[in-house]
Design a protein around this nucleic acid. Structure first.
Length: 266
DNA sequence: TCACAGGCTAGAG
DNA sequence: CTCTAGCCTGTG
């Protein structure tokens, strides 16, 4: 099927660091795994972009029942644009010019927890590599609690390093506490953040990433080394979190993406 | 060789 | 409370 979608750029999303299992076929075409949580067994989606027109390999029913939600079509990105343009935040405006096609995908919570646990003190190629290999060991599907033996993480070829015990702990905990994931989904941002931080290997940065990308708490503002640097460079007097109430996390994505582009140029 | 990469933990002060 | 060494490991 075909559909026009505003404020969406596949390359920008793919490089914004929120998804680790998109397969790039070209700058305009990506394959996105279909299986996610309770939707396991669904076909992967091939999506091609031409301007704001998108060609998708799924049916209109699949779009309405699943992918439309995944691409966050129920968030008002026109309003986000307005909030930036009506501000006096010149740096945010500049970032928005380059990254206005970024959306906060509605990805599956468990996959985000595991992915961002692996992401700490790590680089993108190693993260995707580790996740790919873990999925390989599970028949190409992302493993859910109980689906795999946690001793699998000891395999050195996965390149997980010191994060191995974190992964074993979280898989064991989620299996022993089957309500945990669903409970997280009902919590407000602060409660979810603190509940996540109770787990071994989840600190403030990882917890915020899970809140933003796994629970879609768009007020969550993860601060990694890059964001820390850009805040010091562009916001010496402090970032106005209050002005961006409710959408600071989306703004963070624009700032972060811009920062990556600048660093790539060097 | 050495710093660094989408950080966290534990221990010291 | 804040601060920081050490942690796995591939990359430049």
């Amino acid at each position: 099927m075909r559909i026009t979608i505003p404020h969406m750029d596949l390359k920008q999303i793919a490089e914004s660091g929120q998804c680790f299992r998109w397969k790039r076929l070209s700058d305009d075409t990506y394959v996105i795994p279909g299986e996610r949580g309770s939707n396991q067994g669904c076909e992967p989606l091939t999506i091609t972009q031409t301007g704001d027109l998108f060609e998708l390999s799924c049916s209109e029913d699949d779009w309405n029942s699943q992918w439309k939600y995944y691409f966050d079509m129920d968030t008002d990105y026109d309003d986000v644009m307005r909030r930036i343009m009506e501000s006096d935040d010149e740096h945010a405006k500049e970032c928005y010019r380059l990254g206005s096609g970024i959306r906060i995908l509605r990805q599956e919570l468990w996959e985000m927890i595991v992915s961002f646990l692996i992401s700490q003190n790590n680089n993108i190629s190693r993260i995707t590599n580790s996740i790919d290999k873990i999925c390989e060991k599970n028949g190409g599907r992302f493993p859910y609690p109980g689906e795999i033996d946690v001793s699998l993480f000891d395999d050195k070829s996965l390149g997980l390093g010191y994060r191995v015990p974190y992964l074993k702990d979280i898989f064991t905990y989620a299996l022993d506490n089957p309500k945990w994931l669903d409970d997280l989904k009902t919590m407000d941002y602060d409660t979810a953040f603190n509940t996540l931080k109770e787990r071994n290997g989840i600190g403030p940065k990882v917890a915020n990433c899970i809140c933003l990308f796994g629970l879609h708490h768009t007020e969550s503002f993860p601060i990694d080394t890059h964001v820390k640097q850009l805040l010091e460079a562009y916001y010496p007097n402090g970032f106005d979190y209050d002005y961006y109430e409710g959408i600071a996390g989306i703004i963070q994505q624009y700032l972060f993406y811009y920062e990556l582009l600048q660093k790539k140029r060097k």
